[in-house]
């Protein structure tokens, strides 16, 4: 399916919003306003926007704690994201969960845990429910290449394949699992090769190209929706930041970051928009102003929000 000009601009907006929001969160972190950690997906924005944009409103996503940007095209309210980082009671978990461990089931966004990829089986289970109930819905699960070494990853792919479930497994191969380079985590070059072990299609795409990501995910989503079962998509990119806010990424080989700066997904997409969709400076500035206002509003909301009442500590353990 060819994307319209409006859709291109939509994706551009989410790419810019994601990056700007992460930058603001980093500032808040450095100001000491975030009591916990930050996990950034800088450099991976094309993976998030391209994939999430290929879904329909009834679909569900299972992001990890690095994948906040994937929530944005789903309509996640950024006020809630900032409030959660600031540990405020107005965040989606009322201060119980940290940074990007948030979601909104009404928008089809699961709330992740730290053990990755624990939501791979969960996403398969959501797809199982869709199939049982005869619903034309699809689940999309995210993780990095590091998590593909864990048993849950393999159990989820195998289960989904055996049951022909409408789920897309999306692996962001960002070259590092915390500090461990991909080649020390697996003997093969492409995560996508693992798909053949489960009898499902596997494809590797350029994770810095939102359109290529979108088209691959859309094809897999369509297959899933048509009842043809799961697929594995590997998007190759580089995590441009350390694992978390405290990690200065000192172990990145010299020149690697610079090499990937040149492939920056947002710059590349902007060139495409200028060349083919007549993006001009004025439009870009308008989008940026809109985004800054939105983020300013979210930060103001979060800063003005109260912290949770300590008496709430024992509430909500059970329904």
């Amino acid at each position: 399916m060819a994307l319209s000009r409006e859709q291109h601009f939509d994706m551009y907006y989410y790419l810019l919003l994601g990056r700007a929001l992460e930058e603001r969160l980093e500032t808040l972190y450095k100001q000491g306003k975030i009591p916990g950690a930050i996990y950034q997906g800088r450099g991976q924005e094309a993976c998030y926007v391209g994939s999430a944009y290929a879904l329909e409103p009834g679909d569900v996503i299972a992001p990890t704690h690095r994948d906040m940007i994937a929530m944005l095209p789903r309509g996640m309210d950024i006020k809630l994201i900032v409030a959660q980082h600031l540990a405020k009671v107005t965040g989606p978990t009322k201060g119980r969960g940290e940074d990007n461990y948030l979601g909104d089931l009404s928008r089809g966004i699961f709330t992740t845990v730290s053990m990755l990829p624990d939501f791979y089986p969960v996403a398969a289970g959501a797809a199982l429910a869709f199939k049982i109930q005869g619903e034309s819905r699809v689940a999309l699960a995210y993780c990095g290449e590091g998590a593909t070494s864990r048993g849950d990853w393999h159990e989820a792919l195998n289960f989904a394949a055996v049951k022909t479930l409408p789920v897309v497994f999306f692996v962001i191969n960002n070259q590092f699992a915390f500090s461990t380079p991909a080649e020390k985590g697996m003997k093969i070059g492409n995560v996508a090769n693992r798909a053949s072990a489960y009898g499902m299609p596997g494809i590797t795409v350029d994770g810095n190209d939102p359109i290529e990501v979108f088209e691959a995910v859309k094809r897999s989503v369509d297959l899933a929706r048509e009842g043809q079962g799961p697929s594995l998509i590997e998007a190759k990119t580089l995590r441009m930041k350390g694992h978390a806010g405290h990690d200065r990424f000192t172990y990145a080989p010299s020149g690697l970051i610079e090499q990937w700066e040149e492939k920056d997904p947002i710059n590349r997409f902007e060139i495409l928009l200028r060349d083919e969709w007549q993006l001009n400076d004025e439009e870009k500035q308008q989008i940026e102003i809109e985004i800054q206002m939105k983020i300013d509003g979210a930060v103001a909301f979060a800063e003005a929000s109260p912290l949770p009442d300590p008496n709430e500590v024992t509430k909500d353990v059970y329904h």
Partner: peptide, 9 residues
């Protein structure tokens, strides 16, 4: 894990 996902749905 699949049961958790089905329960959430």
């Amino acid at each position: 894990g699949a049961a958790v996902g089905a329960a959430l749905m």
